[in-house]
Computed example of a mutant assay.
Amino acid sequence: MSAPYVLVLYYSRHGATAEMARQIARGVEQAGLEARLRTVPAVSAECETVAPAIPEHGAIYATLDDLKHCSGLALGSPTRFGNMAAPLKYFLDGTSGLWLTGELVGKPAGVFTSTSSLHGGQETTLLSMLLPLLHHGMLLLGLPYSQNALLETRGGGTPYGPSHHAGADGKRALDEHEISLCRALGQRLAETAKRLENNRG
């Protein structure tokens, strides 16, 4: 059996969601657990998967085994009309085998998103990503208001999960509060996963 890890699974078009994923991974590692960064390939309405078999740069593509064996999950997507992006939804639609066997039941999970506009559907996107996780029986973690950055942020940040305001051109860097909230989610996932693993042992 492999060492416990938190899977940080995301889709990113212009890099903002990928940077959030890296910050969440840092939070996981700061809490003493391995973070496994994985992405999903792009899709199109004409031919479904349109990406190369191996990404040219960044995280490698996720497999169902990455999901099956994780001790916790952080799921991230840019916002598409107040919903998760199609590539991530496409990957999740292929997880019914894990649902049938209950592989994810009782594992902690959280979500994160990035939008080009400040009020571009961050909260609805986060909520849409929580729905399949509920069906898998995962334990959902958000961000409590004991996180000062949640009260002070002028960019992204919600109790449902970290968010980022990337700007109209998608190039606005994560600010200090957004980084803090990403790391806080990673830490919460890792700490919860470790407690649950210890109780199972």
Rank of each mutant, 00 (worst) to 15 (best):
L141M: 12
H165W: 15
S146M: 13
A173V: 12
R172L: 10
G155L: 10
T153D: 04
G156E: 05
G155K: 10
T153L: 04
E178C: 13
E152W: 01
G167E: 07
P144N: 12
P162N: 07
K171V: 01
A149F: 05
H165L: 11
H177T: 11
R154C: 06
Y145C: 06
L174Q: 08
T153V: 14
T153S: 09
N148G: 03
L174K: 06
S146D: 15
L174T: 07
R172T: 11
G161E: 14
Q147C: 15
D169Y: 00
G142M: 04
L151V: 10
E176Q: 13
K171A: 09
P162M: 14
S163A: 13
L150I: 07
R154Y: 06
G157Q: 02
G155W: 04
S146L: 14
D175M: 10
G161W: 03
H165D: 09
S163V: 13
G155D: 08
N148F: 08
Y145E: 12
K171C: 06
N148H: 09
A168M: 02
L141S: 13
P162D: 03
E176T: 11
G156Q: 02
P159C: 13
Y145H: 08
H164S: 13
P144H: 11
R172S: 00
P159A: 14
G170R: 02
L151Y: 03
G142V: 03
L151N: 07
A168L: 13
P162R: 08
G167N: 10
G167T: 09
L143P: 04
Q147K: 12
G170A: 07
D175N: 15
A173W: 02
L151K: 09
D169A: 01
A173C: 02
H165S: 11
L141E: 10
G157Y: 06
P162T: 04
P159W: 03
P162S: 12
A173P: 06
R172C: 00
E178Q: 08
